[in-house]
Design a protein around this nucleic acid. Structure first.
Length: 871
RNA sequence: GCCGGAGUGGCGGAAUCGGCAGACGCACAGGUUUCAAAAACCUGCGCCCUCACGGGCGUGCGGGUUCAAGUCCCGCCUCCGGCACCA
């Protein structure tokens, strides 16, 4: 028996064919200004993906989601005549490679190289139109030479400094971590406990840019929620600093407050347990209690200090401070000074004036320790009883309310004023008295920029007998020494401390010096890679100004929300710092940012709510049951996880259906920004669409030739199909512009359905244009169809088909006819018919519903509907 | 607790500016083809009443604005994400 050979859609043969064609001909190589073939008349478009960390696990289905989206836009923009920069590279330094090295005794450079090879192969299998000549790796000395150079620039401008302040230390990971890498006192990676420790570290002064990092958000095309996240992370607060003298101690406590207007209501002060003045002001009688409290606070984990600490705790120091509003003898001005861990040493000045009448936390503290709660407000909330309680200090009130007559010290009165006016008046008074000034503080801390790791960029710095000395530019890069043992030393030191020959070196004067043994964090290389892509082979500069002036800013940047405050903030900071130095023209690197949602998966839950791993389930009819107990399980949507056995591997999908199907399915699942579950049963649906597209051009049996007979020569377009096609072009174009890829695909499906029903009416020219529409989404099959149909030149650069607007309107349209807002019929009328014609037709269509009724009102929405309001 | 986002058929989702809710796909059912099955193709498919024609109800819940509400306003509920003693 010989099966007749069929010319079916076979991605396994056409996809490798076109991938090799694109690579061999460097189809997507993008020239820079000044290069041969560069066309300055075209507009530019820079489409960027968040480059991956090449893990040993290989590509996850989450990666191709955002990558397909930018690839669609890139291919579309090329067809629209843009010079498109669409690069890819590797965020190759980092912890997992080193952890793996420790476990398996393989050098991280080797595993990284293997992982990169896997990622590159997997990405190339998906047909992305990257300019592979621009591929970069952050772990490549040719790259990190410039990471080190940028760090030197920051250092020379005073933006990099050494600090001994307490930092997050993770024992399990053997390194310090930045604030955004620690969540509730545990490491983001691995969920290990972390603690605060004073350690010498390199820090970058991102706080110097806090104000600009907030204000420049306004001009960016990012989602409001992401901008809000950044604003909140930076955490700007306007208020005042006020100085309080400590009785007898000769000390002065400076506090930060956002409510200087409530100064009359201050009844005690609180220092954080770590505040440097605590030792000086504590009275002998209180010394033991204070020391015990400090020890207890230090021993508490961050979790205990935040999550569990709804009850306030604290200890009196025995000292009293003076409210600057009152004369020395005035008892109203005598404020006991406490220490309590609800005051954080790293925020503001680490000390507060407590105003229990106006602050919930101070109120709770005052209640707990029996401290006075002087009322300061004279509110009128509309609830007289509540007003009385607030005025008497029996209820805390933190909203704007007029101040009462007690807010008066003889030289300053706030009586009757509201919050804003009172703030101004108090600050003016404090300034005149030399007791305080307006002040803005930020929650944002400086960026902890060193790690106790091997697999990162070495710092281009030496420790000499005179202090710190930068390595000269001509000696960059400082490369890592070869090592075989990457174990952390059990002390907070980098493994590099054991590379004794590497560490011991000579300074500029030939005297003994030591290399810095800390390395840079993972976010170092990723904070400027978008710049390097503009000019990746430059060995004179980190990026030529002409190249970055042309390509920047990034027009479209797609990635997950997990980088909302880390990477995106750091990149903005470095761009601004380099801009201030004249090295980069823009102040913001990413004009439009789009966050893709997460691809989730189905899992099955038993009656107790526990997730049953896939291998312990089986299908039973349309239900899924427990393989052993037979219990019916409840389907839920959750993260993909090895533990649940519901991880989808893109290689498997490509193997079964091809890359075009994978790309199309991921875009068809739903809006790019939404999280949505992977449903294996839906994948064949989009695959069938590609098969149907294929069959429009290619006969089933080879004896009928490589193309249907009616497509072998040109002929006039069928008018009905022409309308359908132009509608599709219009829809797909608009949908790509607004990143609505799911509906663009639906529109193409509608066209293919229409065309399939009128197959022999389809013209060659129509099918060529359809291939152009399909190309951004499913480039392999589109190229193959283009070639078979005899399309001219590379499809990737064929101009986008023109929409004939005249074909988008019908001569005759159908309007819905409503009576009292309910659709009761339809009427066909000529397009653009005057209202009286439309109304006449509409009346006929719903005659039965109007019979015996009086029409009170007639509403005509041109081209859409008619509504009769009857009585 | 505070700040975002969301809730639409059996499922994923569509409805872009207040104008016919459910496009498109999946699943399911019936049919054509077949020795049979798969594939492919055709038809149907929100729920309820009805042989049918047709009608009623329907976008998390309760109100409101409007000729007209998934869409706007007020009050809730649930889920997801972020922040969380930041003075």
């Amino acid at each position: 028996m010989t099966e007749p050979k069929k010319q079916t859609y076979d991605p396994a043969t056409i996809e490798p064919k076109w991938q090799q064609f694109w690579l061999a001909n460097k189809v997507f190589k993008t020239p820079n200004p000044g290069d041969p073939c560069f066309d300055p008349k075209r507009p530019k478009f820079y489409a960027l993906d968040m480059f991956p960390y090449p893990s040993a696990a290989g590509l996850h289905v989450g990666h191709p989601e955002g990558y397909t989206a930018t690839d669609i836009v890139s291919r579309y923009k090329r067809a629209k005549g843009c010079n498109v920069l669409h690069p890819m590279g590797w965020d190759a330094f980092g912890l997992p490679a080193e952890q793996y090295a420790i476990q398996t005794n393989t050098h991280p450079a080797k595993t990284t190289e293997q992982n990169v090879a896997t990622f590159r192969r997997q990405l190339q299998r998906l047909g992305f139109s990257y300019d592979w000549d621009r591929e970069i790796s952050t772990a490549d000395p040719k790259y990190f030479r410039w990471t080190q150079w940028i760090w030197k620039q920051l250092h020379q401008r005073g933006l990099a400094y050494e600090s001994n302040a307490p930092v997050w230390w993770c024992e399990e990971l053997g390194t310090v971590l930045a604030n955004d890498e620690v969540i509730n006192g545990r490491s983001e990676r691995g969920d290990h406990p972390c603690e605060r420790r004073p350690l010498r570290q390199w820090v970058l002064k991102i706080t110097e840019y806090a104000e600009r990092l907030i204000t420049d958000l306004d001009g960016l095309d990012w989602t409001e929620s992401l901008k809000t996240m950044q604003r909140e992370w930076i955490g700007r607060s306007e208020g005042a600093e006020i100085d309080f003298d400590v009785e007898g101690a000769g000390a002065r406590i400076r506090v930060f407050t956002t409510r200087p207007d409530t100064l009359f209501g201050a009844s005690f002060m609180v220092l954080s347990p770590e505040h440097p003045l605590v030792a000086q002001i504590t009275t002998p009688a209180q010394r033991d209690a204070v020391a015990a409290y400090q020890r207890a606070a230090a021993a508490k984990s961050e979790l205990e200090r935040t999550d569990l600490a709804k009850d306030k705790s604290g200890v009196f120091t025995g000292a009293y401070a003076r409210n600057p509003l009152f004369a020395a003898a005035d008892p109203r001005g005598r404020l006991p000074v406490w220490i309590a861990d609800y005051v954080i040493v790293t925020y503001g000045t680490g000390a507060i004036m407590a105003v229990p009448a106006g602050d919930e936390r101070d109120f709770a503290f005052a209640r707990q320790f029996g401290l006075p709660i002087p009322g300061i407000f004279a509110p009128s909330t509309g609830d007289a009883e509540r007003d009385a309680r607030i005025a008497a200090g029996q209820e805390c009130h933190s909203d704007d309310a007029p101040f009462g007559p007690q807010n008066d010290n003889g030289t300053l009165s706030l009586a009757g004023l509201g919050m804003a006016a009172a703030k101004r008046k108090v600050i003016d008074w404090l300034v005149a008295q030399g007791r305080g000034q307006a002040k803005v503080t930020y929650k944002l801390r400086d960026w902890l920029f060193s790690r106790q790791r091997y697999w990162g960029e070495p710092f281009p710095v030496l420790h000499t007998q005179d202090g710190v000395e930068l390595v000269p530019d001509d000696q960059l890069p400082v490369t890592l020494p070869h090592m075989d043992d990457f174990q952390p030393g059990g002390v907070p030191e980098s493994p590099l401390i054991r590379a004794k020959e590497w560490v011991a070196t000579k300074d500029g004067l030939g005297r003994p010096a030591q290399r810095e043994i800390n390395t840079m964090p993972g976010a170092a290389g990723s904070s400027w890679y978008f710049l390097r892509f503009c000019d990746p082979h430059n060995d004179k500069e980190f990026c030529g100004k002409a190249a970055s002036d042309y390509w920047l800013p990034v027009d479209l940047y797609v990635g997950g929300t997990e980088h909302a405050v880390g990477h995106l903030l750091y990149s903005r900071f470095w761009t601004k710092a380099l801009h201030d130095q004249g090295c980069v023209g823009v102040v913001e690197p990413f004009k439009k940012l789009y966050n893709q949602g997460m691809i989730q998966a189905f899992a099955y839950e038993d009656a107790r709510g526990a997730i049953v791993p896939k291998k312990d389930t089986r299908e039973d009819g349309d239900k899924v049951v427990h393989a052993v107990t037979g219990e019916t399980l409840k389907p839920i949507v959750t993260k993909m996880s090895k533990r649940y056995g519901n991880v989808v591997n893109p290689d498997d999908v490509v193997g079964e259906y091809g890359a075009d199907t994978l790309r199309l399915y991921e875009m068809y699942m739903g809006p790019l920004a939404d999280s949505k579950p992977w449903n294996p049963k839906d994948v064949p649906g989009v695959h069938r669409f590609l098969q149907r597209s294929w069959r429009l051009a290619v006969p089933e049996f080879p004896e009928n030739g490589p193309l249907h007979a009616h497509l072998r020569q040109d002929r006039a377009d069928d008018p009905e199909l022409a309308k359908a096609l132009h509608r599709t072009i219009h829809k797909v174009e608009g949908d790509i512009e607004r990143m609505a890829f799911n509906t663009a695909i639906a529109a193409m499906m509608i066209f293919v359905n229409d065309a399939t029903k009128a197959m022999d009416k389809l013209s060659r020219s129509q099918l060529l244009r359809f291939a152009q529409l399909l190309q951004p989404f499913a480039p392999h099959v589109a190229e193959e169809l283009w070639e078979r149909l005899g399309g001219q030149g590379w499809l990737a650069y064929a101009p986008w088909p023109q929409v004939d607007k005249r074909l988008l309107v019908d001569d005759e349209i159908e309007v819905a006819v409503q009576v009292l807002g309910k659709v009761r019929g339809h009427a066909k009328v000529p397009n653009g018919a005057p209202n009286d014609v439309v109304l006449a037709a509409a009346r006929v269509a719903v005659a039965a519903w109007l019979d015996g009724k009086a029409v009170v009102k007639e509403i005509v929405v041109p081209g859409k509907l008619v509504n009769f309001v009857v009585k």
